[in-house]
């Protein structure tokens, strides 16, 4: 179809109710960078975007801001924390992973680190959140990849607070790629954030928020932008649900 025939459908498309064949046609025009349709859709989107600003105001909890910043801080750098803090924390974590899995020692170490550092607001939030997951009353620990050369580590799942993944032997992702964590529930994988591993193959990733009824936590290698569904075979998957039951 030509642009003129699509003109009447720009707004329908922008609000999400365009029907076939116009919907696919508009997509095709946008895909080939059709100037006319791009201009038209931009304009239609402006009208639609304005609708979003007419809702009754509501105020999120103050904790949400911290939560969002903390989840980015964790994803952003290797651990998201000041280097010395990361080092202390990492040592405790990997000790727990590789030397007998004493979560209690780990929690104690973490508590110490937390007390020592009260200045780094964002970073401390990340530590606090990791701490909350590690020590949650409902937290379960799953060890994966034991005795293998492949990635191994532990997954801490607190249904009420989130997932903390600690892994070793995870070689740094190729350029343009990153690891993506998935929370598997009822056969469906939900994206749970991107992360990178350190040159030594260690990695840590945390996803905050309720993760009720998690069946498994898995990791795949994806393009850096992330995927909405896994596009490759998981490097590892830690079954969670079976453990709880």
């Amino acid at each position: 179809m030509n642009c003129n025939e699509l003109r009447e459908h720009y707004e329908l498309y922008a609000i999400g109710v365009a029907e076939e064949p116009e919907r696919s046609e508009i997509r095709a025009h946008l895909n080939r960078q059709c100037e006319v349709c791009m201009q038209g859709i931009k304009r239609a989107r402006e009208v639609v975007a304005l609708l979003g600003g007419t809702v009754p105001p509501a105020v999120p909890s103050a904790a949400l801001r911290r939560r969002i910043l903390a989840s980015v801080a964790v994803e952003q750098r290797r651990f998201g924390w000041a280097p010395f803090l990361a080092a202390a924390f990492a040592m405790a974590l990997f000790a727990a992973v590789y030397f007998g899995g004493r979560e209690r020692d780990l929690a104690n170490e973490l508590a110490r680190v937390r007390e020592q550092n009260s200045r780094q607001t964002i970073e401390l939030t990340a530590v606090n959140q990791a701490f909350a997951i590690l020590t949650g009353a409902d937290t379960t620990v799953t060890t994966f990849g034991e005795g293998q050369a492949n990635p191994k580590g532990k997954v801490f799942v607190s249904p009420s607070q989130g997932v903390l993944l600690i892994a070793g032997n995870l070689q740094p992702a190729p350029p343009g790629k990153a690891y993506e964590m998935w929370i598997v529930k009822s056969g469906k994988a939900k994206a749970a954030g991107m992360f990178q591993s350190a040159p030594d193959g260690s990695a840590m990733h945390m996803q905050r928020g309720s993760v009720e009824n998690t069946d498994a936590v898995a990791v795949t290698l994806e393009n850096q932008a992330g995927a909405d569904q896994p596009t490759s075979t998981p490097l590892f998957a830690a079954p969670i649900r079976a453990l709880i039951q």
């Binding site: 979003g52 809702v55 949400l64 801001r65 939560r67 928020g209």
Partner: peptide
Amino acid sequence: GRVTFSLIVRVVRDAGIAEDLVQETFLRVW
């Protein structure tokens, strides 16, 4: 943050779920 939360609450009508979705939204944009 507020306008995003307000929009999502208007759609899902649950503040807790809305906060999770706001987090997803900001992370996705990031």
